[in-house]
Nucleic acid binder design. Structure first.
Lengths: 290, 290
DNA sequence: CATAATATCTGACTTAAGTCAGATATCGAA
DNA sequence: TTCGATATCTGACTTAAGTCAGATATTATG
């Protein structure tokens, strides 16, 4: 009915005409938008003035004046950076923190209200995640994390959940060769996640043995983040890490049901090889020489 | 990992920080945002100055000045409304139309580029449709249309497509008792669609016989618009139309696979009755006395 | 230590946007 | 025809936001 371009533009209209309404918490507390944005950015943990300026895309003069006005209001204090006295650090005062919390409360209440109006909030949230991931794709960072940490465990949980949905006979971690977390940590291996504004959207593990051969394990990309090249970025990170560990041969196993993964491997220099383990779930095996 | 409220707020951040980037076509042609918005609103068919002011939420003084500046640029002409010389009508000049088309081209190109960067544009579009529907829910209108028209046919096509996906043995219109379009038009019946900023999001047919009994047919709500109460609004429209046609008893058939529909009927005063036709697809039958 | 580079700040601007009180013209109804 | 209501316009403001050229202080580098 509507062509794709019209649908994107319809989305833009909906969002921009509601955008005031999307998060009006920045208004309504008798403070210009600029100052409110700075206060909130500081409240969210950004203290370095240069970082604030960069994040909010403000001119240095303007930034400086906004900080002064917040200082005059008694909401913020600044002091030189201990390592470099040219740089300045901003911090909320007690009053500033109260004001920040007031903004947070407003903003949370608005988000809550929008969800409450919907009778299928999970579907709506999934759609929002997807749009947010697509719009913020160049702000998704790949980070090496502890494979036993909270974020890694969350990703693995989602990964297992997806396998049990997609495999015809389900998936039971206990029956699979679950790699030891220590094999996916320095100095033998590594574990990476893709992080978008606080939400983990993907992961991959590099399972080392200490020798020249290592395995890629647990490659997962959140449904909301498919189609924006995250799988590739995660694999690149794992390969780079493998090279740094002097690993010469990478292997992986997968299941033909996971067609996106197979396509990715085929396109990025992996070659199919014979089965190299007796794990019951995989039916495809790949190798890549670095 | 992130709670629902945080996910909504993450979406808000993604959208608001990209919102300049969402549609920057309003900038970049050496004209202040306000004037560009007025030019575009006129280009999209709004000519009445009061309507423009209302749509763009501008003060009358500001509106007046923006129109003057566009007139000075030679992009717009205004003239008194033929029926009421107090009101004024704005119109694009040839140069204004060219300028408007340039904005349109930019905007389309941006939408196109955003889609091109995504390798699963259909999923992204579906997510955008869902978010747009949820944000613009109070701007969705129910309209009576010709059951043979383009919009009705689009909705019916989507409806049949969904049935064939959800019914275990598929769905073949030819095998079903497809109601004649004329039975779903005045004076015997009616056909309604839900329209959101140009995109049809749902439909329902009232199939009359000329007597006191009529049937509800083809209730469909687009996946992107589920959870915002559209089914109910469509049914209300059909019931109102039935009352106006002096219909006393409404009937409908459905399939138990369509659980959302069944829930809706149960909650809105319908009672289950015995099978009243030999259509192979339905297995549930409802009645409502008006 | 001299000098260039860096981070922030200040002062002097411009522009966009918005507000508000009237002015002007026209319309609708008594 | 008169008068209140309505639609738009004009003039006189305010505020927010952004720009830009230096000033100042500090750090890095040869």
């Amino acid at each position: 009915m509507l062509d794709p371009v019209s649908r994107v533009r319809r989305f833009n209209r909906a969002v921009t005409s509601e955008v005031g309404a999307l998060d009006t918490s920045f208004l309504g507390r008798g403070r210009p938008l600029g100052a409110a944005r700075v206060l909130n950015a500081i409240g969210h943990g950004r203290s370095d003035v240069a970082e604030l300026r960069d994040y909010l895309a403000l001119d240095s003069g303007l930034m400086s004046r906004l900080l002064r006005s917040l200082e005059e209001e008694g909401l913020v204090t600044t002091k030189p950076h201990p390592d470099d006295a040219r740089r300045r650090l901003a911090k909320l005062t007690a009053a500033g923190r109260r004001e920040f919390e007031a903004y947070e409360t407003l903003s949370n209440a608005q988000a809550q209200a929008m969800l409450a109006r919907h009778s299928q909030p999970e579907a709506l949230l999934a759609a929002m995640d997807m749009v947010a991931a697509a719009l913020g794709r160049n702000r998704i960072s790949i980070a090496e994390v502890d494979a036993r940490g909270e974020q890694a465990r969350y990703c693995l949980g989602e990964y297992y959940g997806e396998l049990s949905r997609r495999f015809e006979r389900g998936f039971d971690v206990a029956r699979s060769r679950d790699p030891d977390a220590v094999d996916m940590m320095a100095p033998r291996g590594a574990f990476f996640i893709a992080l978008s504004d606080g939400l983990p959207l993907g992961c991959v593990g590099l399972k080392g043995t200490g020798g020249a051969v290592a395995e890629i394990k647990r490659l997962w990309v959140a449904p909301a983040a498919r189609g924006i090249g995250l799988g590739r970025r995660l694999m690149d990170a794992a390969e780079d890490a493998a090279r740094k560990l002097s690993i010469k041969i990478l292997r992986l196993d997968t299941n033909s049901v996971l067609s996106e993964a197979r396509q990715l491997y085929r396109r990025t220099g992996w070659t199919e090889i014979d089965r190299f383990n007796d794990d019951p779930y995989p039916d495809l095996f790949f190798e890549k020489r670095l």
